[in-house]
């Protein structure tokens, strides 16, 4: 268990810049600093993991960029993912050396936390065995992707709060034929991002702090 988590809110930040800052925090945590929980949003960007199938991109690069969506290769496994304003990004930079070094338990905790978060907003979500992320019915609402270096975590959750869901039509998210949804779509109105952030921090502190 962690004693304390340092929370940082980076606001709206370009993906590459946030990745550099994440890597710097991973280094700090590896060197013994407290764990960090980073919250932010990204301008529209497609991140292409190392295992991206070209067929997961449903349009040509020029057409995608013409919609104001940047494309960037990223240092992680997995396929293509979209980030955009209205999607709350959560990057837990946690030292799992202090928590039993078990990737499966960590992923399960993230999924349970994501389900609990949505319950607070009156949304019944589920995690599906064999599929990463959290779903409402068959629609995916929260994406989860984790990286680990020396048992320190990076990357994390993409929570579709008020995301422009039409942007997901550019890709097969994570290489899957899955439809995406958001809190806004399910509730029929925009949700205050600040409320989601507060609840997210609260749940992380309950789940990961002693």
């Amino acid at each position: 268990m962690n004693k304390r988590i340092i929370v940082e809110d980076w606001g709206l930040i370009e993906y590459p810049k946030s990745f550099e800052r994440q890597r710097a925090l991973v280094q700090k945590v590896q060197e013994g600093e407290e764990d960090f929980l980073v919250l932010c949003e990204h301008p529209p960007v497609l991140t292409l993991g190392r295992m991206t199938n070209p067929q997961s991109l449903l349009y040509q690069r020029e057409d995608i960029e013409a919609r104001g969506v940047l494309m960037t290769k990223v240092d992680r496994g997995g396929d293509v993912t979209l980030h955009a304003p209205g999607q709350l990004i959560v990057y837990p930079i946690f030292n799992l050396n202090k928590q039993g070094k078990d990737l499966k338990i960590y992923m399960q905790k993230l999924e349970e936390l994501a389900v609990d978060l949505l319950k607070n907003f009156g949304i019944l979500a589920i995690s599906i065995s064999g599929k990463r992320g959290v779903f409402v019915g068959e629609d995916k609402i929260i994406s989860i992707g984790v990286g680990i270096r020396k048992w320190v975590t990076y990357h994390g959750l993409g929570i579709n709060v008020n995301t422009d869901l039409s942007l997901f039509n550019l890709i097969k998210p994570c290489g899957l034929n899955v439809r995406m949804t958001s809190i806004q779509k399910l509730k029929g109105h925009q949700m205050a991002m600040e409320d989601v952030k507060i609840k997210t921090i609260d749940l992380f502190q309950k789940e990961f702090c002693s």
């Binding site: 190392r50 295992m51 992680r76 496994g77 997995g78 990737l103 992923m107 064999g130 990463r132 992320g133 989860i144 992707g145 984790v146 990286g147 680990i148 270096r149 020396k150 994570c174």
Partner: peptide, 10 residues
């Protein structure tokens, strides 16, 4: 880098 589902491990 090894990957399991959506987690990658360096």
């Amino acid at each position: 880098e090894a990957v399991t589902d959506k987690a990658s491990f360096v």
